[in-house]
Simulated assay, not measured.
Amino acid sequence: MPSLLAVCAVHALRPDSGSVGVTAIDKRPLDGEVRVGPLGVRADVQASRKHHGGPDKAVYAYAQQDAEYWERELGRELAPGWFGENLRVEGIDVNAARIGEVWRIGEKVLLEVTMPRTPCATFARWVGGAAARGWVKRFSEEGRLGAYLRVRRAGEVRAGDAVEIVSSPLDAPTVLEVYRS
Rank of each mutant, 00 (worst) to 15 (best):
L4S: 05
L5E: 10
V10N: 04
H11F: 12
L13V: 07
L13G: 05
P15I: 11
D16K: 09
S17C: 15
G18S: 09
G18V: 12
V22M: 14
V22L: 14
I25Q: 05
I25L: 15
K27C: 06
K27H: 01
P29A: 07
P29F: 03
L30Y: 00
D31K: 10
R35Q: 15
R35M: 15
L39F: 10
G40W: 01
D44W: 00
Q46C: 08
Q46R: 04
Q46P: 01
Q46K: 08
S48Y: 12
R49H: 06
H51W: 13
K57R: 15
A58C: 04
A63K: 02
E68I: 07
E68L: 14
E71S: 05
G75E: 13
G75R: 06
A79L: 15
W82I: 04
F83L: 09
N86E: 11
L87E: 00
V89L: 13
G91V: 06
G91L: 07
A96K: 13
E101Q: 15
I105D: 02
G106H: 01
E107T: 12
V109D: 05
L111R: 00
V113F: 03
V113K: 05
M115P: 01
A124F: 03
A124M: 03
R125H: 04
W126G: 06
V127Q: 03
G134R: 07
S140R: 02
E141S: 13
E141H: 12
E141Y: 12
G143A: 07
R144K: 13
L149C: 11
R152Y: 05
G160Y: 09
G160D: 12
A162E: 14
A162S: 14
A162K: 11
V163A: 06
E164R: 15
P169N: 09
D171C: 09
A172M: 06
L176V: 14
L176W: 10
Y179P: 02
Y179C: 03
S181T: 13
S181H: 13
